[in-house]
Design a protein around this nucleic acid. Structure first.
Length: 505
RNA sequence: GAGCCGCUAGCUCAGCUGGUAGAGCAUCUGCCUUUUAAGCAGGUGGUCCGGGGUUCGAGCCCCCGGCGGCUCACCA
């Protein structure tokens, strides 16, 4: 029972594995044969490396020598420098690294002989007191050290780390283990999400969860993933957005709800797109899209300041200034300005189509006027908005869930936020007129039949919910991954998703 | 989906005009009780992404395929 988990190294096995793997298995076997439990779970550290550094880094060598307190730490051996009868190791735990000094005449002959069989990559538990080395490094003088888990592979190189991009994604644990900074990105990601959650919670928003498996998908223009429920014998979609369910909850009377969760869109993969990505969507009754502009500025600026201590940050070598007020421009003005378009394109669909053609924008047959305009905007306008910009005045036809503008019925009360040329947020005053909503869905059906397979599907149950009365409401979605990219200076969405989707090997 | 680039030891990378595989780190042996990319001396380690082809001979040239990155297209 003692070593049942330690494999015998047969010739057949050794042939399959590389030399290092075989050597480490042999060491584990040998330690186990000497009576060491190979995978113990009875070691409890009482401090972490960062806590040690935080508390004792400033103490002089003399002050440390006077200290009698003993500490126990656990972590992975990241470096080992042997000196015959002594050795320096660095162990890494969740919040940092700390050096340990293992001396034969301190730990004893037998323990030292065992320690010699420990390798870089092994997880150990150690106990000892603190001292400062001649070169000034705060170090644990190790009194006892135990193997907690054997590592059977050598770690990536100590100096260059793990560079191979594919390996970094497929074996993210190695990336996180050996590449400095990667952990920080994901810690920041968590802080960002926590900030957003607290910000809305403090404004009396209720965090909810709505279905990811849906029999009718909606809330965005995108192609869905399909799946199947065996017992119900029913095909289902993975949601492309939570929108229609969150608004049902506004009908229900929650008045302020939000959800932070994954959406799934069956479309291209790029540095800006992962098939599953995280959105925060929030809905507030008795608010308008203009209220949400203020909220967005306030929330994002607060976040940037909390994370960076300033509103001026650097993204990929360019300065990015979040200072308020953010620039505002309408789709119409952006097209006039950046496409140098004639006003007639807004009233004359043929002229809009001609402009699109001159910009080499491919359009399918029977495309709506509004869709043409938005395509033109995306081509010429989007890349221009480096600093945070609210774009308003979206065409009705591309906004089937948004409230019509009162003075211009060809547009809706909607904005998107662009930063560094990328869409970060999308918000609007919600359409709460059920009759209008039904007509808009019918319009989308026509678009679908005309060949737009991302047109919004009809959702009669949603219309029925609106019929019971949804208070005037404004709602917004923010692409969390993209926000994290900006705030962690990451060029690819895969840098901010722990396990991005890859083809299977 | 298209174009370009990449894939060589566990990791980071060299490899000329086609001539039979190399370095550093890791690892092994020896020396070494305050080092930190420890040091010194000497070793081991390869499905050169896979499959075909050309050639006396292919890591290198040609064809097919795989995986990844970037750009473009679609999308957030």
């Amino acid at each position: 029972m003692e070593d049942s988990s330690v494999e015998e190294i047969t010739e057949e096995l050794a042939e399959k594995l590389n030399d290092e793997h075989v050597r480490r298995l042999a060491r584990l076997k040998s330690l186990s044969d000497e009576g060491l439990k190979p995978y113990p779970n009875d070691f409890t550290p009482n401090i972490t490396s960062a806590e040690v550094t935080g508390r004792y880094e400033k103490l002089t060598a003399e002050a440390l020598a006077a200290l009698t307190e003993s500490f126990s730490l656990a972590g992975r051996i990241m470096a080992k420098r042997d000196f015959g009868k002594a050795s320096f190791i660095h162990i890494q735990d969740r919040d940092g690294r700390l050096q340990g000094y293992v001396k034969k005449d301190v730990v004893g002959e037998e323990a030292f002989a065992q320690f010699k069989k420990f390798d870089i990559g092994d997880i150990v538990g150690l106990e000892g007191t603190l001292f400062r080395t001649r070169t000034g490094e705060l170090t644990v003088e190790v009194k006892t050290i135990r193997l907690l888990t054997k590592g059977l592979h050598s770690l990536p190189e100590k100096w260059h780390g793990l560079k191979d991009v594919e390996a970094r994604y497929r074996q993210r644990y190695l990336d996180l283990m050996v590449n400095p900074g990667v952990k920080d990105v994901f810690i920041k990601r968590t802080k960002i999400i926590r900030y957003l959650r607290e910000y809305l919670t403090n404004r009396s928003y209720l965090e909810v969860e709505t279905p990811m498996l849906q029999s009718v998908y909606g809330g965005a223009a995108a192609k869905p993933f399909t799946t199947h429920h065996n017992t119900l014998g029913m095909d289902l979609f993975l949601r492309i957005a939570p929108e229609l369910y969150l608004k049902r909850l506004i009908v229900a009377g929650f008045e302020r709800v939000f959800e932070i969760n994954r959406n799934f869109r069956n479309e291209g993969i790029s540095t800006q797109h992962n098939p599953e990505f995280t959105m925060i969507e929030f809905y507030e009754a008795y608010a308008t899209y203009e209220d949400l502009m203020d909220l967005t500025e306030d929330m994002v600026c607060g976040l940037v300041e909390e994370l960076h201590g300033t509103l001026k940050i650097t993204y990929q070598g360019e300065e990015l200034d979040f200072s308020r007020p953010w620039q505002r421009i309408s789709v119409r003005d952006a097209i006039i300005k950046y496409a140098e378009a004639d006003e007639a394109v807004f009233t004359d669909k043929a002229k809009a189509a001609a402009l699109a053609e001159s910009l080499e924008i491919p359009l399918h047959k029977d495309v709506s006027h509004g869709k043409i305009l938005i395509e033109i905007f995306e081509k010429v306008g989007e890349p221009e908005f480096k600093r945070p910009t609210f774009v308003t005045g979206y065409p009705l036809e591309v906004s089937p869930l948004a409230r019509k503008n009162e003075s211009d019925p060809s547009i809706v009360d909607r904005f998107e936020v662009f930063i560094m040329g990328k869409e970060i947020a999308n918000a609007f005053s919600e359409l709460n007129d059920s009759v209008d909503q039904r007509e808009r869905f019918n319009g989308q059906l026509a678009e679908r039949e005309a060949g737009d397979d991302e047109a919004h599907p009809m959702d009669m149950e949603y219309v029925q919910a609106l019929e019971y009365g949804m208070p005037p409401t404004a709602g917004e979605g923010i692409g969390v991954d993209r926000l994290v990219m900006l705030l962690t200076d990451s060029p690819s969405i895969r840098d901010v998703i722990l396990f991005p989707l890859l083809r299977k090997v």
